[in-house]
């Protein structure tokens, strides 16, 4: 059996010496969709930022395809960073570049593809996310949903084996959101891309997630892990059932 795509082991994370996450360990299997979920303020985004190497953990390790991103430096670190793609909540497209230039940027910097090829690849990526014909638009000329999809196209530019998405569904209408789900599933099944997604959109979690990792603000760590439908129906933890069944906290 192949090594898992992403392994988080005994991760302690926090800011200013105060831990937001304690002893978080889980694995994201290759080619599967893993969703990190939990209520607001439970440290989902913090965990993601540690997994992609933006922040240094207090202790613990994150292995991307077997390589430790928390200790890697220099060229090794660059190699790890190139093996995955990330999209941010707000899209984070470069505002002064057109969509085509946004997608072409990593291709230009990291491959030797000739110009025509870069543009063809970029067009394929944009077509994959349903944005053909918008190549020459600036990000500010796009709707929120289109910006999200363009960000995914940019993250996929180098065909990474792993994609990290930070709340891809946030602020999208149900139809666009369902389209995005389908896109994620198709990329995962056909290209074998591993997805690690931070989300709390239940409908989409049930539609796409092979595995869910649930964080909790009080426990400051993982309180449940497994296929989402199974967690909803059989979890012993009332908080988990509550989350998946969308029930409000009962009055004390």
């Amino acid at each position: 059996m192949e090594a898992p795509a992403v392994v988080v082991s005994n991760l302690y994370a926090g800011y200013g010496g105060e831990a937001v996450l304690r002893d978080v360990s889980f694995e994201a299997a290759r080619g599967e969709v893993t969703v990190i979920l939990g209520g607001s303020g439970c440290g989902k985004s913090t965990l993601l930022k540690h997994m992609i190497g933006l922040h240094q953990p207090l202790s613990g390790h994150v292995f991307i395809e077997g390589r430790d991103i928390t200790t890697a430096r220099g060229r090794e670190r660059k190699r790890i960073l190139r093996s995955f793609g990330v999209t941010y909540q707000s899209g984070a497209l470069f505002g002064s570049l057109t969509l085509m230039e946004n997608v072409c940027l990593p291709l230009e910097e990291f491959t030797r593809l000739p110009l025509a090829a870069r543009e063809a690849v970029a067009r394929v990526k944009l077509a994959q996310v349903g944005l053909s014909g918008a190549e020459h638009k600036l990000p500010s000329e796009l709707s929120g949903g289109m910006q999200k999809r363009a960000a995914i196209a940019r993250a996929m530019a180098l065909d990474p084996a792993i994609l990290f998405l930070d709340e891809p569904q946030a602020g999208l209408d149900p139809v666009t959101s369902a389209g995005l789900d389908e896109l994620i599933l198709s990329l995962s099944r056909n290209l074998g891309i591993t997805f690690v997604i931070v989300s709390h959109e239940l409908a989409s979690i049930f539609a796409i997630a092979d595995q869910a990792v649930m964080l909790d603000a009080q426990a400051k760590g993982v309180i449940a892990q497994g296929p989402p439908a199974l967690l909803r129906d059989t979890s012993a933890n009332p908080k988990v059932r509550q989350f998946f069944n969308r029930t409000p906290t009962p009055e004390p």
């Binding site: 491959t111 593809l113 025509a116 090829a117 063809a120 690849v121 067009r123 394929v124 990526k125 994959q128 996929m156 530019a157 065909d159 290209l191």
Partner: peptide
């Protein structure tokens, strides 16, 4: 065959 390969075939 990844995105680049697809781009080649489509081209």
């Amino acid at each position: 065959c990844d995105g680049s390969g697809l781009a080649l075939l489509l081209e």
